[in-house]
Write a protein that binds this DNA or RNA. Sequence first.
DNA 1: CTCGGGATGTATCGGCTCGATACATCGATG
DNA 2: CATCGATGTATCGAGCCGATACATCCCGAG
Lengths: 194, 194
Amino acid sequence: MAGGQGRVLELAVLGSLHETPLHGYELRKRLNALLGMFRAFSYGSLYPCLRSLLEQGLIAEDQPAPTTIVGGRSKIVYKLTAEGKERLQDLLTQAGPSAWEDESFGVHFAFFRHTEAEVRLRILEGRRSRLEERLDSVRTALARTRERLDSYTLELQRHGLESVEREVRWLNELIATERRASQEPVRDTTSTDE
Amino acid sequence: MAGGQGRVLELAVLGSLHETPLHGYELRKRLNALLGMFRAFSYGSLYPCLRSLLEQGLIAEDQPAPTTIVGGRSKIVYKLTAEGKERLQDLLTQAGPSAWEDESFGVHFAFFRHTEAEVRLRILEGRRSRLEERLDSVRTALARTRERLDSYTLELQRHGLESVEREVRWLNELIATERRASQEPVRDTTSTDE
DNA sequence: CTCGGGATGTATCGGCTCGATACATCGATG
DNA sequence: CATCGATGTATCGAGCCGATACATCCCGAG
């Protein structure tokens, strides 16, 4: 209940609402357009999350003209409160395991624009070591396997390893870029080469 | 409760036990060595699953010498029953959405050795169209986005698309191989080319 | 003009799964 | 012989998803 541990949604919602106020349906569409390649958010978790955020006072309903509604339900547009912005900044500053696990890394990355350079770097490195850890454990488990594996299992292992190795390479490039950008933020055309 | 829908674990456990009897701890180790690149099974789902399978009579405890235990708990070794083997064959024959979703595809693939060629092909193709569907929806959503995206979001999209495209290519190769194998199971060296 | 289907929109429920945790045994190492 | 890490079984709270229900709006076919 202490909030913020596994709550990827909280960050995703707060981050999206930071750009512009939205209602549930569109919020989900944006989220799935942004992160659809990695995960799919469902209403079953989105609406409870919105309710919880409302209760915590981190978001508020934003209805300019309630008179327009005649009979049924109207759109409920949510916007970030001042406390919500604070909380968002808080979440964006946290660089812990909850930032670089599979489910949450994508969300954190998607809002890197609002994250400090130092935190970005720590999250990228955390993600990388998490993946290398996984590579290690699978590789040693594979090496310890005495019995020969069938070709399908082998192919699955190969593909899995390659995918993860590929992501590590991607992270390496990102980390290198971040380091370059932070070490030489202002670099004139004075030196054309070393 | 009707069982079998989201139950990836059921297939994973039954499939592992088909090779050799195992107890919970080692079962989890094997599973995570086999599929650790894609997902991580936890005790919180493994033990309830084992209990359920026991109640259904699909697995049974296999204790040759209970007298060896003195004080505490002993290892509980599970083995497949005849009904369990039937159920496993059943699960391996099913080629539905439950076979090619993210969480379950890896498990089904890992036991392709015991799966009929036709079912294998349908699962691979189902997985491929699932991924292409996702590519489409993300790409159109991306094209409809009027506002320019920041470089991080863009990079995330690029990496995500590339990863999925890569998996599609992998599936294409596997499907081609399957087709070749099923069309020409016995092919002599009579034709060196076309 | 009207009827129906598809997109828009809010909301909930059952059930699966995970992370954390508790507890107990055993072998090795200091 | 004590303690530490691996082995081993087990549960609980809480998060999250898929399916579903229900209501509105708009647009094109008949």
